[in-house]
Computed example of a mutant assay.
Amino acid sequence: MKLFLRDQFPLIFIYLIQIIVITSIYWLDGYHNWTISLYAALLSSCLLIIYLLIRYITNRSFYQRLEKPLTSLDDFASNTHQTPLTEGLQQLLTSQFRHYKTDLHHYKYRLEGHIQFINQWVHQMKTPLSVIHLIIQDEDDSRFTAIGDELDRLKKGLETVLYTARLDSFEHDLYVESLNLETVVRSVTSNQKRLFIRKRIFPSFQFKEDVIVASDEKWLSFVLTQLVTNAIRYTVEENRKLHFHSYNRGIHTVLEIRDEGIGIPQSDIPRVFDAYFTGENGRNFQESTGMGLYLVKQICEKLGHRIEIESVVNEGTTIRIIF
């Protein structure tokens, strides 16, 4: 009703101005019978009111639909009163929606093709990296050791790209099973042994026997790899430990990863899981991309796990995954 009155306000305003002008002309011409003038104005006003009522009743569903957001074009097509105005608007919306769906399908097709290309490219790049690694693995020269370290960084970067591209189609690449948590953690740390040795950091395990959790091994391993490499990267002093500890919290199993690194400023902690946020530490360590913890958060949410973080500057950071 409010929208209808706002739409018809110019007509009502012009009508009142017209009544005043016509009455004034008759008054200047010497016709001073106010009774007849008021009677004529009353009849004219009644005709206007009847017109407005008919107009509102005819287009009531149209104005009500405009006051509420459309959930689909079928809602608008369900109007019982079809007028030229409603039919014209419905045709316009149908045409615009058809163009929108066409453009959306076009961009979706391009995006899927782009993601497929990235996946294929990453897999193709893994082959030469593996070959180079096989070539240098038996060499003792420090130059080959440096090359191996760079290969590990390249491999980690490619995996980050691959998992980022697959995140939107997560449900198509998910296999939940019962996993031995200690086995998964030890496998991840073993894969990162070159990084542990280079930084002179030692893993420390505190697990109860047969800690079983329900998760996807591949995605969980990627999450743990991100957390381990972050912990090692931000531990600048040598001969430090990276602690892995599991315990029960009620019905939940908790995996706690605690480093002895530089820690995270309290002002940065609320944003560490935001995409591309590097924070104060990221400005001091140029390797930081701001995507590692973002992917960790997104994957944990999709797996149904919760993640917590605590940190004290110059003492270390603790991250907990709650299964």
Rank of each mutant, 00 (worst) to 15 (best):
V223P: 00
S311F: 05
D75I: 07
I50G: 01
E308P: 01
K199P: 00
L48W: 02
Q96I: 08
S142Q: 15
S246Q: 10
N284T: 06
Y163C: 01
Q18F: 14
Q266F: 03
V213E: 06
Y63I: 06
Q286V: 07
Y56K: 06
N230E: 12
V312W: 05
L224D: 00
Q286I: 10
T318M: 07
L293D: 00
E67V: 11
S169H: 11
K218C: 01
D141R: 08
R233E: 07
D75C: 07
Y100D: 08
I269Y: 01
E182V: 02
D29L: 15
I232C: 13
I269D: 01
R198Y: 09
H243P: 01
K297W: 04
G88N: 09
K241S: 08
I25N: 05
I115R: 12
P265Y: 12
A77H: 12
I12C: 08
Q120L: 12
N79P: 00
T94Q: 11
R110F: 10
S24L: 15
R194G: 11
K101W: 02
L11P: 00
A214T: 05
N230T: 12
I54H: 06
L70P: 03
H245N: 14
V272T: 07
D103L: 14
T127P: 00
Y294H: 15
F207I: 04
Q96V: 09
V21C: 13
V272H: 05
N281C: 08
E301T: 12
L42M: 12
Q8Y: 11
Q96A: 14
A146Q: 14
S61G: 14
I12Q: 05
M291P: 01
G157H: 09
S178Y: 07
D7I: 00
T102W: 03
R240Q: 15
D152A: 09
I14H: 03
Q116E: 13
I201V: 13
